[in-house]
Simulated scan of single mutants.
Amino acid sequence: MTGRRRRRAPPEKDETEYVPGTLLDWSDRDLHWSSRELPCRYCGFPTHLRDSKRKPAHKVCAEDALAIQAAEAAAAYRARGHLH
Score class of each variant (00 low, 15 high):
Q69D: 15
A74E: 12
A67F: 01
E15Y: 03
S34V: 04
L24Q: 06
R50N: 02
S27T: 01
G21K: 04
E63N: 09
R36H: 08
A75K: 15
L83D: 10
L31N: 11
K53P: 01
D14P: 00
L49R: 14
A79G: 13
E12S: 12
R41W: 05
L66T: 10
F45E: 11
R36S: 14
M1K: 14
G3S: 11
H82K: 15
A75R: 15
Y42A: 01
G44I: 02
P11M: 03
R4G: 08
T16R: 06
P20M: 02
E15S: 02
D51C: 01
L49W: 14
E37F: 02
L66N: 13
H48T: 00
R36I: 13
P56T: 02
T47L: 05
G44Y: 09
H48A: 01
Y77T: 12
P11H: 04
C43K: 01
H82E: 11
A70H: 08
L83N: 14
S52F: 10
E63K: 10
A65K: 13
A75I: 10
P56C: 00
P39Q: 11
P10F: 03
I68W: 11
L83I: 13
A74S: 15
R50Q: 05
H82V: 13
Q69T: 10
A65G: 06
P39M: 09
P10C: 10
R29A: 01
T47Q: 08
Y18V: 03
Y42R: 05
D51Y: 01
S35C: 07
L23E: 00
T22I: 00
E63D: 05
H84P: 13
W26Y: 06
H84Q: 15
K59D: 03
R54F: 07
A73M: 14
K13N: 12
L23W: 05
T47V: 08
D30L: 09
P39E: 14
G21E: 00
A65H: 12
L49K: 06
L23S: 01
L23Q: 04
A62C: 05
S35G: 06
Y18A: 00
R4L: 14
I68M: 09
R36Y: 12
A71C: 06
D14W: 09
S52Q: 11
T2V: 13
Y77A: 12
K59P: 00
H48N: 11
R41K: 15
Y42M: 05
L49V: 05
S35L: 11
I68D: 14
Y18P: 01
E37D: 07
A62H: 14
R5P: 08
C61E: 04
H48W: 02
I68K: 10
S35W: 07
L24R: 14
Q69A: 15
E15C: 03
D51Q: 06
P46E: 09
I68P: 03
G81N: 06
W33H: 06
A9K: 12
H84V: 14
C43S: 07
R36G: 08
A71R: 14
Y18F: 09
A73T: 05
A70P: 07
P11F: 03
Q69S: 15
G44H: 07
Y42F: 12
D28H: 12
E12F: 10
L66K: 15
A75L: 10
A57R: 01
A75C: 12
A62L: 01
D25A: 04
Y42E: 08
P11Y: 02
S52V: 09
P56H: 04
R29M: 04
D14N: 11
E37T: 07
T2S: 15
W26L: 00
E63A: 03
